[in-house]
Write a protein that binds this DNA or RNA. Structure first.
Lengths: 143, 143
DNA sequence: CTCTTGTAGATGCAACTGCATCTATATCGA
DNA sequence: TCGATATAGATGCAGTTGCATCTACAAGAG
């Protein structure tokens, strides 16, 4: 077995660490503001983007990189909290269409400044615009 | 509230995505090889590094960025699997010293090629050495 | 010494996740 | 049309996590 280069290992470990630290910062900020966790934001955003037509859970799970059962349960919880609405789909008796409720839209809007604040503090103040772009480019090559 | 730059958002979303995709790839490879999950590897590695003297759980949790209860339970499971050994520490009746067992060492060694193989395939084949170094540098600035 | 405060680690409980499987509907080939 | 296969989504169960709290020992103040 070939050994990875030191640079490879450094890239990976710093990736994991940065992810953990930032995620934790965001979660903490949201919690302190009495708002839902970050995965709800991502879901609310995707649903909002599609809101003219609504979106199907199977599409959503692909965009959010969630397993099928994870998506199903996340939607359960969000529906129970009154943030989304599940309705039957015309033309496919198996499926459903997800839409935001007004409360869902409001919750997303309330979460955004908290989320954005952390991104500004943790990313924007530490990387120049060019560096951020370069970071995105390099990370993009990984997937 | 000031809006983050597009570059900031792109950096963050690509960070989250890259992390998820790579992590999933590694977990899948380990699972297919019948080996424990990645967090066990990280713990085994840290314990191994300290093995001359052993290491205390409270030190370990800081290096691994785990909450105290998470560390406690991870050690429970690893001890139950026979990979680590918890012994009393002389001079501090509250604490314990963690060491690898032979099986723990062997497990770490068995995991390494699988882990390394994914890193080579997913990182090293997609980024040059310079790019990987640059990626690590940029990520390092975030934390 | 004894009381208060601090630190190491464990644990009950509720929520969440992964895995496997299940139900229901859709689609495709003979 | 019918049977086989594929797709959408839900769910039982066991294992894991987060939160709050608890126990035990340590350290410093009076």
């Amino acid at each position: 077995m070939k050994k990875p280069e030191n640079e490879t290992i450094a890239a990976w470990t710093s990736l994991v660490t940065a992810n953990r630290v930032l995620l934790e910062t965001i979660e903490k900020a949201l919690k302190e503001a009495g708002l839902p966790q970050i995965d709800w934001y991502d879901a609310l955003l995707e649903i909002d983007k599609a809101d003219a037509t609504g979106i199907r859970p199977f599409e959503l799970k692909e965009r959010l990189l969630l397993p099928q059962y994870g998506m199903s349960r996340l939607l359960d919880r969000m529906a129970k909290a009154g943030l989304v609405d599940r309705r039957e789909v015309e033309g496919d008796g198996r499926g459903q269409i997800i839409r935001l409720t007004n409360k869902g839209r409001a919750t997303r809007l309330a979460m955004w400044p908290v989320y954005a604040g952390v991104l500004i503090g943790s990313v924007e103040q530490r990387l120049s615009k060019d560096e951020a772009a370069e970071l995105a480019r390099l990370l993009g090559k990984l997937t």
